[in-house]
Nucleic acid binder design. Structure first.
Lengths: 193, 193
DNA sequence: GTCTATATTCGGATAGAC
DNA sequence: GTCTATCCGAATATAGAC
């Protein structure tokens, strides 16, 4: 249930964002969305064509938010290592998992280009930015020559996404934190300092 | 549809294993299981109490199979690095994702101790074995002193699980392979050789 | 052990009044 | 724009015949 001040569309979108995060696409029903938004059936179908349409809007918004948050860390001040560490250490609410990564598991999302696009784009951009930061670190002499920056960037992203998986499986955030420490330990060995 | 030779229970369990992998727990209906197994309603409810019971049996079996496969790589011949590389490079059918990791996303699985146990146990054992191998590599002088073996083991596991996520999001196996190459590149730098 | 009814609720949506 | 009524099929099971 959201502020009565907020526009109906926005309440519907936010409810959908939350439910997709918690329960995934298959597990999210229009009725549940309406109830959480405090909105009736007719209202939802007036503003959106149906569940896929609303989900697409919710995923687009989540993608924007996630990209903005990650960008803030990755493009912050500091060395390449520090910026990657900032990104890795930012992650929060580990047991809720990643809003975008979760969607990658859902066959109905993967099968629908409109739903998959925000997910693919989010990881594509993050990957690109991380690879740039690593390449800059190399160029500056901060990092030793070694594995392809694109490969390292993928490994960093994977540690985060996999960390979420391990944490949820374990019922505790500890595996996520271990994985991040492990990855940072390995990256630290790449520094010339 | 499975061999008519196979016992009804086994056909039901295998159908369930496949469907849980493809569609997750929420996305898997008793009817779909029966159809894939070529078995009627009554038959399924004769052998199993219901969907949760059947899912528990399927997850237990998948857990055994996954653990055995991973154990074969991790405990094979070679140095610590080579055994980890064997594990990382073994992964297959990347776009299908991990049968166990997928379950970690499903709230109904996570919430039910009986369903979550096989998932938790699988990752727990894999983590333990990987940490042992890394610790052995340290003790043998193959690997330089560095991050906690438990942290490195978690990072390795996370790279695999996260690699699956990135690959499915991208619609191609490439991100998985990049992440594995990146992780192996970082691990290679830990060798004393 | 397996099959065919039957039951109940939910999922996803349309129709039309206000 | 929002509400209520209604629709149809799927999800998950139970009952009882064979």
């Amino acid at each position: 249930m959201y502020s009565a001040r907020m526009a109906t569309q926005d309440r519907l979108i936010e409810s959908t964002q939350d439910l997709l995060w918690e329960r995934g696409y298959v597990g999210t029903s229009p009725k549940a969305i309406q109830q959480r938004a405090g909105v009736g059936q007719g209202s939802m179908y007036h503003h959106f064509e149906g569940k896929p349409d609303l989900a697409a809007a919710a995923l687009r918004r989540s993608a924007e938010q996630l990209q903005a948050a990650a960008e803030a860390d990755i493009s912050g001040p500091g060395t390449a290592y520090e910026r990657i560490a900032a990104y890795l250490n930012r992650e929060r609410e580990v047991l809720r998992g990643c809003r975008m990564g979760r969607m990658a598991q859902d066959p109905d999302v993967i099968a629908d280009a409109r739903l998959r696009a925000p997910v693919e784009e989010t990881f594509g951009r993050l990957h690109g930015r991380l690879a740039e930061v690593i390449a800059e670190g190399r160029a500056d002499g901060e990092l030793v020559p070694g594995p392809d920056p694109a490969d390292l960037a993928a490994a960093v992203l994977a540690v985060v996404q996999g960390g979420y998986v391990l944490a949820r499986a374990a019922g505790t955030a500890e595996p996520f934190r271990q994985a991040v420490r492990g990855a940072l330990g390995l990256l630290a060995a790449q520094r010339t300092v």
